[in-house]
Amino acid sequence: MSENVQGGWRFGTARWIVLAAIILGLFLFTGFFGVGLGIKPIMPEVFLPGEKLSEEPLFIIPFVGPFYYTNTMTGLLLADLVVLLIAFGVSRAVKSGKMALSGMSGAVEALLEALYGITEGTAGKWTKPIFSWFAAITLLVLASNWLGLIPGAETIGLIHEGHGDYAVKDLFSIGSLKVQTIWDETDAAHEGEVAAEGEHHGAAVIPFHRPVSTDLNFTFALAIVAVVMIQVFGFRSQGMAYLTKFWNTKTLFSKPIFGVIDFGVGLLELVSEFSKILSFAFRLFGNMFAGAVLLFVIGSLVPVFAQSMFYLLEFFVGLIQAVVFGMLTMVFMSQATQGHGEQHDEAH
Protein backbone atom coordinates (compact mmCIF):
# COMPACT_ATOMS: atom_id res chain seq x y z
CA MET A 1 0.00 0.00 0.00
CA SER A 2 2.85 2.35 0.76
CA GLU A 3 4.66 2.17 -2.54
CA ASN A 4 8.14 3.59 -2.57
CA VAL A 5 8.83 5.49 -5.70
CA GLN A 6 11.65 3.37 -7.03
CA GLY A 7 12.54 5.71 -9.93
CA GLY A 8 16.05 7.06 -9.53
CA TRP A 9 16.19 6.16 -5.85
CA ARG A 10 18.38 3.48 -4.54
CA PHE A 11 18.81 2.15 -1.05
CA GLY A 12 22.20 3.85 -0.90
CA THR A 13 20.78 7.34 -1.41
CA ALA A 14 18.00 6.87 1.13
CA ARG A 15 20.52 5.64 3.70
CA TRP A 16 22.56 8.84 3.46
CA ILE A 17 19.44 10.98 3.75
CA VAL A 18 18.41 9.13 6.92
CA LEU A 19 21.90 9.53 8.35
CA ALA A 20 21.86 13.26 7.57
CA ALA A 21 18.48 13.61 9.28
CA ILE A 22 19.77 11.83 12.39
CA ILE A 23 22.85 14.09 12.55
CA LEU A 24 20.65 17.16 12.06
CA GLY A 25 18.38 15.97 14.89
CA LEU A 26 21.33 15.42 17.19
CA PHE A 27 22.73 18.83 16.28
CA LEU A 28 19.44 20.58 16.99
CA PHE A 29 18.51 18.89 20.23
CA THR A 30 21.76 18.11 22.03
CA GLY A 31 24.46 20.31 23.37
CA PHE A 32 27.59 18.19 23.88
CA PHE A 33 30.88 20.08 24.02
CA GLY A 34 29.35 23.26 22.72
CA VAL A 35 28.36 21.56 19.46
CA GLY A 36 24.68 21.71 18.68
CA LEU A 37 21.95 24.13 19.56
CA GLY A 38 20.56 22.32 22.59
CA ILE A 39 16.93 23.13 21.88
CA LYS A 40 14.65 21.72 24.52
CA PRO A 41 11.79 19.68 23.07
CA ILE A 42 8.37 21.11 23.74
CA MET A 43 5.24 19.38 24.96
CA PRO A 44 2.46 20.97 22.90
CA GLU A 45 -0.78 22.06 24.49
CA VAL A 46 -3.38 19.34 23.89
CA PHE A 47 -6.91 20.36 22.97
CA LEU A 48 -9.60 17.72 22.70
CA PRO A 49 -12.08 19.54 20.42
CA GLY A 50 -10.87 20.83 17.07
CA GLU A 51 -9.26 24.22 17.59
CA LYS A 52 -10.86 27.26 15.98
CA LEU A 53 -8.59 29.03 13.54
CA SER A 54 -10.57 32.28 13.64
CA GLU A 55 -12.35 34.04 16.44
CA GLU A 56 -15.43 35.03 14.42
CA PRO A 57 -17.62 32.27 13.04
CA LEU A 58 -17.69 31.74 9.27
CA PHE A 59 -21.47 31.89 9.21
CA ILE A 60 -24.34 31.20 11.57
CA ILE A 61 -26.56 28.22 10.93
CA PRO A 62 -30.13 29.06 11.97
CA PHE A 63 -31.39 27.07 15.00
CA VAL A 64 -28.00 25.37 15.39
CA GLY A 65 -25.46 28.02 16.19
CA PRO A 66 -22.28 29.56 14.90
CA PHE A 67 -20.06 27.64 12.51
CA TYR A 68 -16.33 27.96 13.06
CA TYR A 69 -13.53 26.91 10.76
CA THR A 70 -11.50 24.45 12.84
CA ASN A 71 -8.18 22.87 12.02
CA THR A 72 -9.73 19.43 11.76
CA MET A 73 -11.76 20.78 8.83
CA THR A 74 -8.49 21.38 6.99
CA GLY A 75 -7.79 17.73 7.66
CA LEU A 76 -11.18 16.74 6.26
CA LEU A 77 -10.72 18.85 3.11
CA LEU A 78 -7.23 17.44 2.55
CA ALA A 79 -8.46 13.87 3.05
CA ASP A 80 -11.32 14.46 0.61
CA LEU A 81 -8.85 15.89 -1.88
CA VAL A 82 -6.58 12.87 -1.56
CA VAL A 83 -9.47 10.45 -2.06
CA LEU A 84 -10.70 12.38 -5.11
CA LEU A 85 -7.20 12.50 -6.60
CA ILE A 86 -6.86 8.75 -6.08
CA ALA A 87 -10.24 8.19 -7.73
CA PHE A 88 -9.43 10.29 -10.78
CA GLY A 89 -5.91 8.88 -11.07
CA VAL A 90 -7.09 5.29 -10.90
CA SER A 91 -9.95 5.83 -13.33
CA ARG A 92 -7.54 7.43 -15.82
CA ALA A 93 -5.08 4.55 -15.38
CA VAL A 94 -7.87 2.01 -15.90
CA LYS A 95 -9.06 3.77 -19.05
CA SER A 96 -5.53 3.85 -20.47
CA GLY A 97 -5.95 0.16 -21.26
CA LYS A 98 -2.83 -1.19 -19.59
CA MET A 99 -3.17 -4.73 -18.29
CA ALA A 100 -1.13 -4.16 -15.15
CA LEU A 101 -1.45 -0.84 -13.35
CA SER A 102 1.72 0.67 -12.02
CA GLY A 103 2.67 3.05 -9.26
CA MET A 104 0.02 4.58 -7.04
CA SER A 105 -2.94 3.16 -8.96
CA GLY A 106 -1.42 -0.32 -8.77
CA ALA A 107 -1.17 0.04 -4.99
CA VAL A 108 -4.79 1.19 -4.76
CA GLU A 109 -5.82 -1.72 -6.98
CA ALA A 110 -4.08 -4.18 -4.66
CA LEU A 111 -5.80 -2.66 -1.60
CA LEU A 112 -9.23 -2.67 -3.21
CA GLU A 113 -8.76 -6.24 -4.45
CA ALA A 114 -7.96 -7.39 -0.92
CA LEU A 115 -11.02 -5.58 0.43
CA TYR A 116 -13.20 -7.05 -2.32
CA GLY A 117 -12.01 -10.54 -1.47
CA ILE A 118 -12.98 -10.07 2.19
CA THR A 119 -16.40 -8.68 1.20
CA GLU A 120 -17.07 -11.56 -1.19
CA GLY A 121 -16.42 -14.10 1.55
CA THR A 122 -18.95 -12.46 3.88
CA ALA A 123 -21.64 -10.67 1.92
CA GLY A 124 -22.50 -13.18 -0.82
CA LYS A 125 -24.82 -11.76 -3.46
CA TRP A 126 -24.86 -8.32 -1.81
CA THR A 127 -21.11 -7.93 -2.41
CA LYS A 128 -21.29 -5.09 -4.94
CA PRO A 129 -23.40 -2.51 -3.05
CA ILE A 130 -21.77 -3.31 0.29
CA PHE A 131 -18.23 -3.21 -1.10
CA SER A 132 -18.62 0.39 -2.27
CA TRP A 133 -19.40 1.50 1.30
CA PHE A 134 -16.57 -0.59 2.72
CA ALA A 135 -14.02 0.82 0.27
CA ALA A 136 -15.22 4.43 0.57
CA ILE A 137 -15.10 4.44 4.36
CA THR A 138 -11.74 2.68 4.46
CA LEU A 139 -10.12 5.02 1.92
CA LEU A 140 -11.42 8.20 3.58
CA VAL A 141 -10.39 7.15 7.09
CA LEU A 142 -7.04 5.86 5.84
CA ALA A 143 -6.32 9.13 4.03
CA SER A 144 -7.24 11.19 7.07
CA ASN A 145 -5.20 9.01 9.46
CA TRP A 146 -2.07 9.02 7.34
CA LEU A 147 -2.26 12.74 6.57
CA GLY A 148 -1.68 13.36 10.27
CA LEU A 149 1.70 11.65 10.05
CA ILE A 150 3.16 14.10 7.53
CA PRO A 151 5.86 16.14 9.31
CA GLY A 152 4.55 19.62 10.03
CA ALA A 153 0.94 18.49 10.17
CA GLU A 154 0.39 19.27 13.83
CA THR A 155 3.29 21.67 14.37
CA ILE A 156 2.83 24.53 11.90
CA GLY A 157 0.08 26.97 12.75
CA LEU A 158 -0.96 30.22 14.35
CA ILE A 159 0.53 31.28 17.65
CA HIS A 160 -2.19 31.83 20.19
CA GLU A 161 -1.19 33.78 23.27
CA GLY A 162 -2.65 33.13 26.65
CA HIS A 163 -2.92 29.36 26.48
CA GLY A 164 0.31 27.48 27.02
CA ASP A 165 3.42 28.12 29.06
CA TYR A 166 6.11 28.81 26.47
CA ALA A 167 7.57 32.08 25.29
CA VAL A 168 7.33 33.48 21.77
CA LYS A 169 10.49 34.01 19.77
CA ASP A 170 10.89 35.75 16.42
CA LEU A 171 12.74 33.73 13.82
CA PHE A 172 12.62 35.83 10.63
CA SER A 173 10.06 37.66 8.59
CA ILE A 174 8.99 37.48 4.96
CA GLY A 175 7.65 40.90 4.05
CA SER A 176 5.07 41.72 6.70
CA LEU A 177 4.60 38.05 7.62
CA LYS A 178 6.43 37.34 10.84
CA VAL A 179 7.61 33.78 11.39
CA GLN A 180 7.73 32.98 15.06
CA THR A 181 8.20 29.92 17.19
CA ILE A 182 7.41 28.98 20.73
CA TRP A 183 10.43 28.47 22.89
CA ASP A 184 11.13 26.84 26.21
CA GLU A 185 12.25 29.77 28.33
CA THR A 186 13.92 27.85 31.15
CA ASP A 187 16.38 26.35 28.69
CA ALA A 188 17.26 29.68 27.13
CA ALA A 189 17.92 31.15 30.56
CA HIS A 190 20.16 28.20 31.32
CA GLU A 191 22.14 28.78 28.15
CA GLY A 192 22.61 32.40 29.06
CA GLU A 193 20.64 33.72 26.09
CA VAL A 194 18.28 36.59 26.67
CA ALA A 195 14.87 35.31 25.66
CA ALA A 196 12.72 36.66 28.45
CA GLU A 197 11.18 39.80 27.03
CA GLY A 198 8.81 40.37 29.86
CA GLU A 199 6.32 37.85 28.48
CA HIS A 200 4.88 36.01 31.40
CA HIS A 201 1.73 34.99 29.64
CA GLY A 202 2.45 31.84 27.69
CA ALA A 203 1.71 30.96 24.11
CA ALA A 204 0.68 27.84 22.27
CA VAL A 205 0.57 26.86 18.61
CA ILE A 206 -2.81 26.18 17.04
CA PRO A 207 -1.91 24.03 14.06
CA PHE A 208 -3.41 24.61 10.62
CA HIS A 209 -3.97 20.93 10.03
CA ARG A 210 -4.96 18.17 12.39
CA PRO A 211 -6.12 14.75 11.16
CA VAL A 212 -9.90 14.78 11.05
CA SER A 213 -10.24 11.43 12.81
CA THR A 214 -9.05 13.11 16.02
CA ASP A 215 -12.28 15.12 16.03
CA LEU A 216 -15.26 13.46 17.69
CA ASN A 217 -17.67 15.25 15.35
CA PHE A 218 -16.25 13.50 12.29
CA THR A 219 -16.17 10.03 13.82
CA PHE A 220 -19.73 10.41 15.13
CA ALA A 221 -20.94 11.61 11.74
CA LEU A 222 -19.27 8.69 9.99
CA ALA A 223 -20.66 6.25 12.57
CA ILE A 224 -24.19 7.58 12.13
CA VAL A 225 -23.90 7.31 8.35
CA ALA A 226 -22.64 3.73 8.67
CA VAL A 227 -25.37 2.62 11.11
CA VAL A 228 -28.16 4.30 9.11
CA MET A 229 -26.93 2.60 5.97
CA ILE A 230 -26.88 -0.74 7.81
CA GLN A 231 -30.61 -0.30 8.47
CA VAL A 232 -31.15 0.74 4.84
CA PHE A 233 -29.52 -2.47 3.66
CA GLY A 234 -31.70 -4.44 6.05
CA PHE A 235 -34.86 -2.89 4.63
CA ARG A 236 -33.67 -3.29 1.05
CA SER A 237 -33.08 -7.00 1.44
CA GLN A 238 -36.02 -7.99 3.66
CA GLY A 239 -38.54 -5.20 3.31
CA MET A 240 -40.70 -4.54 6.35
CA ALA A 241 -39.85 -8.00 7.70
CA TYR A 242 -36.59 -6.43 8.85
CA LEU A 243 -38.51 -4.79 11.71
CA THR A 244 -39.29 -8.19 13.26
CA LYS A 245 -35.63 -8.26 14.28
CA PHE A 246 -36.46 -5.53 16.80
CA TRP A 247 -40.17 -6.16 17.55
CA ASN A 248 -40.34 -9.91 17.60
CA THR A 249 -43.90 -11.05 18.39
CA LYS A 250 -43.84 -14.08 16.10
CA THR A 251 -43.36 -16.62 18.89
CA LEU A 252 -44.78 -14.56 21.78
CA PHE A 253 -48.04 -16.51 22.02
CA SER A 254 -47.18 -19.86 20.47
CA LYS A 255 -44.25 -20.58 22.81
CA PRO A 256 -45.00 -18.83 26.12
CA ILE A 257 -41.60 -18.69 27.85
CA PHE A 258 -39.20 -18.65 24.90
CA GLY A 259 -41.46 -16.20 23.11
CA VAL A 260 -40.95 -13.65 25.88
CA ILE A 261 -37.21 -14.23 25.75
CA ASP A 262 -37.22 -13.72 21.96
CA PHE A 263 -39.15 -10.49 22.43
CA GLY A 264 -36.60 -9.26 24.97
CA VAL A 265 -33.74 -10.19 22.64
CA GLY A 266 -35.39 -8.12 19.93
CA LEU A 267 -35.47 -5.08 22.22
CA LEU A 268 -31.81 -5.65 23.07
CA GLU A 269 -31.04 -5.67 19.34
CA LEU A 270 -32.58 -2.21 19.16
CA VAL A 271 -30.30 -1.00 21.97
CA SER A 272 -27.29 -2.58 20.29
CA GLU A 273 -27.92 -0.57 17.13
CA PHE A 274 -27.41 2.60 19.16
CA SER A 275 -24.40 1.24 20.99
CA LYS A 276 -22.90 0.49 17.56
CA ILE A 277 -22.82 4.23 16.89
CA LEU A 278 -21.03 4.87 20.18
CA SER A 279 -18.48 2.12 19.73
CA PHE A 280 -17.76 3.03 16.09
CA ALA A 281 -17.22 6.66 17.00
CA PHE A 282 -15.17 6.16 20.14
CA ARG A 283 -12.99 3.40 18.69
CA LEU A 284 -11.67 5.52 15.83
CA PHE A 285 -11.49 8.74 17.86
CA GLY A 286 -9.83 7.10 20.87
CA ASN A 287 -7.19 5.34 18.84
CA MET A 288 -6.23 8.30 16.69
CA PHE A 289 -6.33 10.95 19.43
CA ALA A 290 -4.34 8.77 21.81
CA GLY A 291 -1.86 8.17 19.00
CA ALA A 292 -1.39 11.91 18.48
CA VAL A 293 -0.92 12.49 22.22
CA LEU A 294 1.52 9.56 22.35
CA LEU A 295 3.64 11.15 19.61
CA PHE A 296 3.63 14.49 21.48
CA VAL A 297 4.67 12.91 24.77
CA ILE A 298 7.42 10.72 23.29
CA GLY A 299 8.72 13.66 21.27
CA SER A 300 8.91 15.80 24.39
CA LEU A 301 10.72 13.10 26.38
CA VAL A 302 13.26 11.78 23.87
CA PRO A 303 13.85 14.26 21.06
CA VAL A 304 15.75 12.28 18.45
CA PHE A 305 15.32 8.52 17.92
CA ALA A 306 12.36 7.29 19.88
CA GLN A 307 9.63 9.09 18.02
CA SER A 308 10.37 7.36 14.71
CA MET A 309 9.47 3.98 16.25
CA PHE A 310 6.15 5.37 17.36
CA TYR A 311 5.60 6.88 13.93
CA LEU A 312 5.86 3.35 12.57
CA LEU A 313 3.38 2.15 15.20
CA GLU A 314 0.96 4.97 14.31
CA PHE A 315 1.33 4.10 10.63
CA PHE A 316 0.03 0.60 11.36
CA VAL A 317 -2.63 1.78 13.81
CA GLY A 318 -3.95 4.18 11.18
CA LEU A 319 -4.20 1.39 8.61
CA ILE A 320 -5.74 -1.10 11.04
CA GLN A 321 -8.33 1.32 12.37
CA ALA A 322 -9.36 2.33 8.85
CA VAL A 323 -9.77 -1.31 7.83
CA VAL A 324 -11.56 -2.19 11.08
CA PHE A 325 -14.06 0.66 10.68
CA GLY A 326 -14.82 -0.39 7.14
CA MET A 327 -14.84 -4.10 7.90
CA LEU A 328 -17.24 -3.77 10.84
CA THR A 329 -19.58 -1.73 8.65
CA MET A 330 -19.36 -4.43 5.99
CA VAL A 331 -20.01 -7.27 8.44
CA PHE A 332 -22.97 -5.51 10.06
CA MET A 333 -24.41 -4.71 6.63
CA SER A 334 -24.16 -8.29 5.47
CA GLN A 335 -25.67 -9.49 8.75
CA ALA A 336 -28.57 -7.12 8.17
CA THR A 337 -29.11 -8.50 4.67
CA GLN A 338 -29.05 -12.08 5.90
CA GLY A 339 -31.59 -11.44 8.62
CA HIS A 340 -32.99 -13.96 11.07
CA GLY A 341 -33.77 -17.06 9.10
CA GLU A 342 -31.13 -18.02 6.57
CA GLN A 343 -33.10 -21.21 6.08
CA HIS A 344 -36.06 -18.98 5.29
CA ASP A 345 -34.05 -17.29 2.58
CA GLU A 346 -32.90 -20.56 1.13
CA ALA A 347 -36.45 -21.93 1.00
CA HIS A 348 -37.33 -19.30 -1.60
Binding site: V46, R283, N287
Partner: peptide
Protein backbone atom coordinates in the same frame (compact mmCIF):
# COMPACT_ATOMS: atom_id res chain seq x y z
CA UNK B 1 -11.01 -11.75 9.49
CA UNK B 2 -12.99 -13.02 12.46
CA UNK B 3 -10.00 -12.57 14.74
CA UNK B 4 -9.63 -8.92 13.77
CA UNK B 5 -13.34 -8.40 14.39
CA UNK B 6 -13.09 -10.02 17.82
CA UNK B 7 -10.04 -7.96 18.68
CA UNK B 8 -11.86 -4.79 17.61
CA UNK B 9 -14.76 -5.61 19.94
CA UNK B 10 -12.51 -6.46 22.87
CA UNK B 11 -10.41 -3.40 22.24
CA UNK B 12 -13.44 -1.12 22.17
CA UNK B 13 -13.77 -1.53 25.94
CA UNK B 14 -10.23 -0.34 26.50
CA UNK B 15 -10.89 2.55 24.14
CA UNK B 16 -13.88 3.60 26.26
CA UNK B 17 -11.55 3.73 29.27
CA UNK B 18 -9.04 5.71 27.23
CA UNK B 19 -11.67 8.21 26.10
CA UNK B 20 -12.87 8.65 29.68
CA UNK B 21 -9.38 9.32 30.95
CA UNK B 22 -8.64 11.69 28.03
CA UNK B 23 -11.86 13.55 28.82
CA UNK B 24 -10.85 13.82 32.48
CA UNK B 25 -7.40 15.10 31.55
CA UNK B 26 -8.19 17.57 28.77
Amino acid sequence: TNMILGIAFAEAVAIYCLVVSLLILF
